[in-house]
Nucleic acid binder design. Structure first.
Lengths: 207, 207
DNA sequence: CCGCTAACAGTCATCATTGACTGTTAATCC
DNA sequence: GGATTAACAGTCAATGATGACTGTTAGCGG
């Protein structure tokens, strides 16, 4: 039955470990933090209890590993994304990252972190690294915009706004989301794009 | 032993009900959604299991009641707040509402709502009501700003940004928060306050 | 003042989750 | 090629949460 070729221990170990972490992330996306029990993970991964507890001695350890994995994936996604130049494309790309399953899973952990010091520490650490990277990549892509005196302010506000919008998305319609995206773009144009700031774009409001 | 004066049944009932809900909110603030078990609530409220289950037949019912209470309290807080006129005061007041224990508890429920249709429905309903009220009160206070073509856009973005900032607050320093508040104010001034938009205020950025 | 019902009090069975624990297989080292 | 150890497999006891269930008391209506 051992159809698979001989594998080294390190390979086997890494494979199951990755399998478990992937199952954890999937569970976080579908069932949330509370629903992500060690039993659920082991079912999804198709591994035994022994296997799971061999790699991660506790549920907390498993979640921390998931955090690391999530942020690493986010970083890779940023690197892999095609380079954009325009403001609108930048906003769209940024918003897309907030909608990926990775972001959903991470969000779930942010919620749990308030009452879990270990998780909070892990998230804070990874978040700093990600933020610095985003900053660098943004500077790299929008060489002209970065110099604008309003740049830091706009980036700060728009990213937070996206985070907030993502949060309430569970009860929000697509239309309401579209309105927000338009608002972010218009606001960014008004404050960063001097060429556009003169011609007043179409209204963005709406009930 | 019955030192207290005779009370009508309705009074007794309402009193314990309120006691239980308050305990629920407290628990949500301190221990989060996961930590808010029916046992924890009954301990905090100092009521028996029978009392708790008499008023709320399930944990879900209890949480929905907490949602209603939280939003009602938020509404009252808005009404009770002194009327403000300036942009800075408005931003400060708005941000304060995001920091109240009520908001923390509500936040905890927003997280849980993703995997709980009943809770999600309750939150959506109350959220609509609250949003409409905030809109009305804002219009009432800033009669001049409301007419500004950028008004809707700014309100949308700033409120979302606050929501997002509140979310990551668990790992954020006070300094970082102050930077954000400054950014919101400056941005609002730039886009709504035509008098201020000419003189370019001090930079708001910073690593 | 008496029967009735709402408002509790307290216990219990059931179930889910966790991590410890013991047993087994397969890779690696000498 | 035998010993050793990592990588699993599978079971179990302990814990904690939930809601059902039975018993008791106090207000209320007639």
């Amino acid at each position: 039955m051992t159809v698979a070729a001989r594998r080294t221990q390190a390979e086997r170990s890494a494979a199951t470990r990755a399998l478990i972490i992937r199952a954890t992330v999937d569970s976080l996306v579908e069932l949330g933090h509370a629903g992500t029990t060690t039993l659920e993970v082991q079912r999804r991964a198709g591994v035994s209890r022994g296997a799971l507890l061999h790699h991660f001695r506790s549920r907390a350890e498993l979640l921390v590993a998931a955090v690391d994995e999530l942020f690493a994936a986010q970083r890779e996604a940023f690197y892999a994304a095609p380079k954009r130049r325009g403001i609108d494309e930048g906003i769209d790309a940024l918003w897309r990252t907030f909608n990926s399953p990775l972001a959903v899973a991470a969000d779930e952990l942010w919620s749990a972190a308030r009452n879990d010091a270990e998780l909070r520490e892990a998230l804070a650490r990874q978040n700093r690294a990600l933020r610095d990277q985003v900053r660098d990549m943004a500077a790299e892509q929008w060489t002209d915009l970065v110099k604008h005196p309003n740049y830091e302010m706009v980036l700060l506000v728009v990213v937070d706004a996206m985070r907030g919008a993502a949060r309430a998305r569970v009860v929000r319609s697509d239309r309401a989301t579209a309105t927000r995206i338009a608002a972010w773009k218009r606001l960014t144009h008004l404050l960063l794009d001097d060429a556009t700031s003169k011609r007043d774009g179409s209204a963005v409001g709406g009930r």
